[in-house]
Design a protein around this nucleic acid. Structure first.
Lengths: 201, 201
DNA sequence: TATCTAATTAGATGTGTATCAAATTAAATG
DNA sequence: CATTTAATTTGATACACATCTAATTAGATA
């Protein structure tokens, strides 16, 4: 039963400090001491909360020298709300008639995320359809901080959280202009430069 | 700040007994003793959990003689997951480019529910556009039990949870064939008879 | 090696909460 | 009015958890 996961998820979000922590992380990755400072709690408390959030697959971490950087796992955040509703409603005998219709015009982005990421926010596989692939790439890239430089090692570390074949992911990021590389250093491209896919079939 | 509401909501869903209770209610309304039986806990415990669920606006109640019937407030359940994601992501400076697109093809039903129901699951007002009105009516009617008879008083009691003008709601239910009335007794129509709206503009 | 820094662990404390049995309320019915 | 039925309230108990301080680990650097 996946009831446990649902409960772990909601427990994780049922504390003000943890939610504030996630809100901070929505602005980009951050490390323990910085969070401790901004939240007004001790470093030990941050460690405690980070463990809960990690257990619920709401954050990823990356180590750089002595510092551990946390990033939001927003694929998981977005898909979990749906998962709860599904769990509760799944026992209903019949779908209301409107459901079928609704499903047809259903939000493309949300459904791609729901289909290609596991509930823990890991990428099942890279979509072959370009339109969907770009949604998936764009989604993972939002975890990175704009204007920040990443070494290849740092980037790999982060991408490993999504899929073992981090090298392919890194290559796709470059190929579709989400990031650019300048002598071993990777950086996010401004959003205007991200591959446009609105015109695709 | 609505952070409190989010936390109350997640606290409510962070307990196995309460989730099982909601799953039971997804099959239709039920009363305290029945739930106590099915859940394997004392009536006092059910009262305790019901209070939490009510506080989080996840259920409605209706009194009939000595018995109190609980029903799911599924408008609230469906919209709250989104609310959490919104709260966490709202601080992001720019929307990812894909968001705008996604919003256009966005799930009609979900967005109507998000727009016409408050976060507590109350109906703000009846949509004037027929297509949307039917979504809203259909949504409220799923709280009722199929095959069960309701007196006008019972029905009013339930509808008051959604909007003070319960009389209009009741009339709309009849008018659009969600329910039928036979000498002061109301009952749900089978789903096949619910007003079809797929063909509407 | 000694030192510095970031994070974690351990232990303590106070608060919150899930549960039950027993007593109590509220409403309906004989 | 006495009885029955459903729900609530009231403690009591045990467990979970948020937070802190102090001690410890793990890496990096001088």
């Amino acid at each position: 039963m996946q009831l446990d996961k649902i409960i772990t998820y909601h427990k994780a979000l049922s504390d003000a400090t943890r939610i504030r922590m996630l809100i901070l992380l929505a602005d980009g990755e951050s490390n323990g001491l910085t969070l401790s400072e901004k939240l007004g709690v001790s470093p030990a408390t941050v460690t405690h909360h980070a463990a809960k959030l990690r257990e619920a697959n709401l954050i990823h971490e990356r180590r750089d020298k002595n510092t551990i950087y946390f990033t939001l796992n927003d694929a998981s955040i977005r898909s979990h709300g749906q998962a709860t509703a599904d769990l509760i409603f799944k026992n209903k005998k019949e779908m209301p008639a409107s459901m079928e219709i609704a499903d047809k015009n259903s939000n493309l982005k949300e459904s791609v995320i729901r289909n290609f990421f596991t509930i823990d926010g890991k990428l099942k596989h890279i979509p072959s359809q370009l339109k969907k692939k770009l949604i998936v790439l764009e989604h993972m890239v939002t975890g990175l901080e704009k204007g920040r430089s990443y070494t290849e090692k740092e980037l790999n570390e982060l991408l490993k959280n999504y899929h073992p074949d981090f090298a392919t992911l890194r290559r796709e990021f470059i190929m579709h202009q989400f990031m650019f590389r300048e002598k071993e250093i990777y950086e996010l491209n401004p959003r205007e430069m991200w591959a446009k896919w609105e015109t695709l079939s």
